[in-house]
Amino acid sequence: DTFTFTLDGIEVRLHGASEELIKTIEELLKRDIRWEELEKWIREWEK
């Protein structure tokens, strides 16, 4: 599955994202998160 969203005018596609990761990103997007914050968060998630 591919999860697609737009952040700061950039279309982002995550391939093979888990349901948990998708739900977490959706929550972060509701908080009007900035790209830099999401990028940092995703790097931490990957560890």
Rank of each mutant, 00 (worst) to 15 (best):
E19T: 14
K40Q: 13
K23P: 01
I22K: 07
D1S: 06
I22G: 02
E39Q: 13
W45R: 03
E37Y: 06
E11Y: 03
L29G: 01
E36H: 13
L14D: 00
H15T: 14
T24V: 12
E26I: 13
E39C: 11
E46H: 14
K23Q: 14
E46C: 10
E27D: 12
L21V: 13
E26A: 07
E37H: 07
R13C: 15
T6C: 15
D8C: 05
E44N: 11
D32E: 10
T4N: 10
E39L: 14
H15G: 05
E44S: 12
T24N: 15
L7P: 00
F3Q: 00
R13L: 08
I33T: 06
W35A: 03
S18F: 03
E26F: 08
R13F: 12
T24Y: 10
E20I: 09
T4Q: 11
T6E: 15
R34G: 10
E36D: 14
E44V: 06
E46S: 09
A17E: 02
H15R: 06
E20C: 08
E11W: 02
K30N: 09
T6I: 15
R31E: 07
H15K: 09
L14M: 11
L29V: 07
T2N: 11
I25K: 00
E11D: 05
I10W: 04
D1Y: 09
R31N: 14
G9K: 01
F3Y: 14
W41V: 15
L21W: 06
G9E: 06
R34S: 12
R43G: 13
F5P: 05
F3T: 01
L38H: 00
I33M: 06
L7N: 02
F3P: 09
D1Q: 09
L21R: 04
D1N: 12
W41L: 15
E36M: 09
I25C: 02
T2Q: 05
L14E: 00
L28T: 03
E46Y: 15
G9S: 02
A17D: 02
R31W: 07
E44Q: 11
F5R: 01
I42G: 01
E44D: 13
E44C: 08
L7I: 15
K30F: 08
W41I: 15
K40D: 07
L29C: 02
E19P: 15
L29H: 01
R43M: 11
R34L: 06
L7Y: 12
E36A: 14
K23W: 06
E20L: 10
W41A: 14
V12L: 05
K47Q: 13
K40V: 11
W45H: 10
L28P: 00
W45G: 04
F5Y: 01
L38G: 00
D1G: 11
R13H: 15
D8K: 00
D32N: 12
L14A: 01
E39G: 05
E26R: 10
E19R: 09
K47N: 12
E19A: 15
L21A: 10
L38W: 15
I25H: 00
S18N: 10
I10K: 08
L14T: 01
E27L: 11
G16I: 05
T2C: 10
D1W: 03
I42V: 07
E20Q: 12
F3A: 00
S18M: 03
T2K: 06
V12S: 00
R43C: 10
H15Q: 10
E27Y: 07
F3L: 04
E20F: 10
L7K: 02
T2R: 03
E39K: 10
S18Q: 05
E36L: 09
L29F: 03
T2D: 15
E44Y: 09
E46T: 11
E36C: 07
R43Y: 12
R43K: 13
E37V: 08
L28C: 08
R31P: 02
K47S: 12
R13D: 09
R43F: 10
E46I: 14
E36F: 08
L7V: 15
G16M: 07
K47G: 11
F3V: 02
K30H: 07
E11C: 07
L7R: 01
